[in-house]
């Protein structure tokens, strides 16, 4: 484990904590896309099928459980919590995300490291994670105003991706046989999707102003 990987995992964890904090403290999920959260729950369930078959480290196992548990908890809150679900921006969150699921699964059937149940679902989860933020970005764009915690949530998610790219560069240079093209190419696509958001995030931060995305 190198410092970039650790920084990536920690910013990922912080993003989840920020989102849980927002929902818990404000009892509101306004500005949060349920579709993106459902996609993340699918991503973690599909990727961590190896949870009980391959033990890597206690750290890995705990983090996997945290990501599966938190994503399911967030989906549950947004759908069923008596108070929280009322603030869900249903009419703005209309991204047809089943197209993403179908496209990613088809791609995983074609492009994978090995044709096995676990490997196809692993590739599927990598492709789906790359595009899972799209419903969230569309929702932010539509609502225009972004509250602080929601902005920070997306910022930390983007930071997590950026650190993972540094991690891969580091591993590529230090580990002779590190070639994981599926992760790396998907990771680059995923990080690129945040570029626009980062641009406006830094502008608002520089001007000390509320984050606003252009319509």
């Amino acid at each position: 484990m190198n410092i970039f990987r650790l920084a990536g995992d920690m910013t990922h964890l912080i993003s989840v904590l920020v989102l849980l904090l927002k929902i818990y403290a404000t009892k509101s999920c306004s500005g949060i896309s349920l579709k993106t959260q459902e996609l993340y729950a699918m991503v973690f369930l599909a990727r961590y099928l190896d949870l009980f078959s391959d033990f890597i480290s206690l750290y890995n196992t705990v983090m996997k459980l945290v990501f599966i548990g938190s994503s399911l908890a967030i989906v549950w809150c947004m759908r069923y919590h008596r108070v929280v679900r009322r603030s869900y921006d249903r009419e703005l969150d209309t991204f047809r995300y089943w197209i993403l699921v179908g496209a990613c699964f088809t791609l995983a059937l074609v492009l994978h490291e090995k044709f096995s149940f676990q490997e196809v679902f692993w590739a599927f989860s990598i492709y789906l994670e790359a595009v899972a933020i799209l419903p969230q970005l569309v929702l932010l764009q539509r609502s225009g105003n972004v509250d602080n915690l929601t902005g920070q949530y997306v910022f930390f998610l983007g930071a997590y991706r950026a650190f993972y790219i540094l991690n891969w560069i580091y591993r590529y240079l230090t580990e002779p046989r590190f070639t994981r093209w599926i992760s790396c190419v998907s990771g680059l696509v995923q990080t690129a999707l945040y570029a626009d958001f980062f641009y406006y995030y830094f502008i608002s931060w520089k001007n000390n102003a509320k984050l606003q995305l252009p319509a």
């Binding site: 890597i56 480290s57 692993w122 590190f178 070639t179």
Partner: peptide
């Protein structure tokens, strides 16, 4: 150990 086949990232 085959580093490239171990899914050690999250």
């Amino acid at each position: 150990r085959e580093p490239s086949n171990v899914k050690d990232e999250l």
